[in-house]
Write a protein that binds this DNA or RNA. Structure first.
Lengths: 159, 159
DNA sequence: AGAAGATAACTAAGTTGGTGAACGAAAATT
DNA sequence: AATTTTCGTTCACCAACTTAGTTATCTTCT
């Protein structure tokens, strides 16, 4: 079923990905990816929110949208995103507004409290990131940008 | 309660983090962090595993450990990690072995199927990452390493 | 050695947040 | 005007988490 057709014992990364070589840079990237995947749950817990609610706050802070669009952004069903919006509204972080032109739609807008929430808990990271970014020379920036583009593409092969 | 004491309206990132400036590099890093946070769920779905089970496979593929240590790695309670191990065992991806010295302990070891599972689904990313890593010159690597160290530290401020 | 305390793993019961299916209201299509 | 599609919601159900409490084993103290 799961590992169907794989009769080999103890397959290693090297066997599956022949060009794989351990490197300190790669280790660092792994750590970054790992931390990025772990952080949302930690932040959500501190904010007394679920991971989806936090995720939703991020998206809504960039752009107001309806439950259906939000569902796509979160990777869940519209039924679930309805619940997410319910909870955000209950916490006072968002409000539902009727769409002026299309009577079917609802626009979910963040309240000030929601906006503060979405920014506040990430502030320490933003500060550290801004300092790091400012420390880059133009030549260094070119190198970093290229690397990040590659890393993004690599991770996105999984999506 | 949540945004307690914040009476200001429409606080922006710039107000909370004065040194914040939008930059293409920062945008890329945000995308990387976002993709890293989103990918596990997508991979888990394809592998017919929960996010925690996938996470557990990753950790166990590096080092066999008991449910308690696994729980800490996953950021859940030991009760939850007991369930995770149950499911991995049920799927044939892991086995419980009694600890030779300490009768309280159980060592959770991956089976070949578990090992294949943990590597197989991430192979496309590994391949892309390996190619990217190999393309770095020594001077570029220094720059990238420094940046990644900073980024890791930034994200870890949230943990 | 024996008692007291700490630790590892598990179990039980309850909560949360997800899915899929069915539904009403409001467009859009024909 | 009738039909189909879309949007948001609700319902019933399920998976995975939490807290609390049990059992077995190890450690420490007298």
């Amino acid at each position: 079923m799961a590992g169907a057709g794989l009769e080999a014992s103890h397959r290693t990364v090297q066997q599956v990905v022949p060009q794989w070589r351990r490197s300190a840079t790669l280790d660092r990237l792994q750590q970054l990816i790992d931390a990025s995947a772990t952080a949302p749950a930690a932040v959500a817990r501190r904010a007394h929110l679920s991971a989806s609610e936090l995720h939703a706050l991020r998206h809504l802070s960039m752009q107001a949208m309806g439950p259906a669009e939000l569902a796509k952004a979160l990777g869940v069903t519209t039924a679930a995103s309805s619940g997410v919006v319910d909870r955000l509204v209950a916490h006072g972080h968002a409000e539902r507004h009727p769409h002026p032109l299309d009577g079917r739609r609802t626009e979910v807008r963040l309240t000030d409290s929601g906006r503060a929430e979405s920014i506040g808990h990430l502030a320490p990271m933003f500060a550290a990131l801004a300092a790091l970014d400012a420390s880059l020379s133009d030549e260094e920036r070119v190198v970093v940008d290229r690397y990040l583009d590659g890393a993004i593409a690599a991770v996105r092969t999984l999506l």
